[in-house]
Simulated assay, not measured.
Amino acid sequence: MIRVLNLLTVLALLGSAIYAYSIKYETVLRAETIMHLKHAIKNKQDQIGMARAEWAYLTRPERLQALADKLLDLRPIALNQIVKADALPNKGARVDGIGRKLEALGLDQPTTTPREGGSGDAATPTSAQR
């Protein structure tokens, strides 16, 4: 009986050692994964910083002005080009053909409805008139 208890104790000790080793191995593996992810994040942050720096370099006003002067055939602004807003043509007004036809027929005036208590010239027929 004592030998069986000794054997069970040794087996329990080996099982707990294997379990502790597996936990340690998973911990080391996850720590390495975290370090790889931190390095990847840092690399992406550096790439974003480089892209922002390149964008700031490419969009400098003096650089763009030099490119515009070199590549675009721009003329300087003349004094007769500057006008008041009232002198500009009204491009926002649209021509409404149907509306003009209704105005010509005199149908652009608002009509009265029975709810408004109108004079009765636009009233609906009643059952007594039928």
Rank of each mutant, 00 (worst) to 15 (best):
M1E: 13
I2L: 07
I2S: 08
V4Q: 09
N6W: 10
L7N: 08
T9N: 14
T9M: 11
A12F: 08
I18M: 11
Y19W: 13
Y19L: 12
S22Q: 15
S22Y: 08
K24F: 12
Y25Q: 15
E26P: 05
E26A: 13
E26D: 12
V28C: 04
A31E: 09
A31R: 03
T33D: 10
M35T: 13
H36F: 05
L37A: 08
K38E: 15
H39E: 14
A40V: 00
A40W: 00
K44L: 14
Q45F: 10
Q47T: 09
Q47A: 12
I48S: 04
M50V: 08
A51I: 11
A51N: 04
A51W: 03
R52D: 08
R52P: 00
A53L: 10
E54T: 05
E54D: 14
A56F: 06
Y57A: 11
L58Y: 12
T59A: 01
R60H: 06
E62G: 04
L64N: 12
A66L: 02
D69L: 13
D69M: 09
D69W: 08
K70L: 04
K70D: 03
K70G: 00
L72S: 04
L72K: 10
P76T: 06
I77Y: 04
A78L: 11
L79W: 10
Q81P: 01
Q81R: 10
A87Q: 15
G92P: 00
G92F: 12
G92N: 15
R94T: 11
G99F: 02
K101V: 12
L102C: 00
E103G: 07
L105N: 05
L105G: 00
D108C: 02
D108T: 10
Q109F: 05
T111Q: 13
T112V: 08
T113A: 04
T113H: 03
T113Q: 01
P114E: 05
R115E: 10
R115Q: 11
E116A: 14
G118W: 06
G118D: 09
S119C: 09
G120T: 05
D121R: 13
D121T: 11
A122E: 14
A123M: 10
P125M: 06
S127R: 09
R130Q: 02
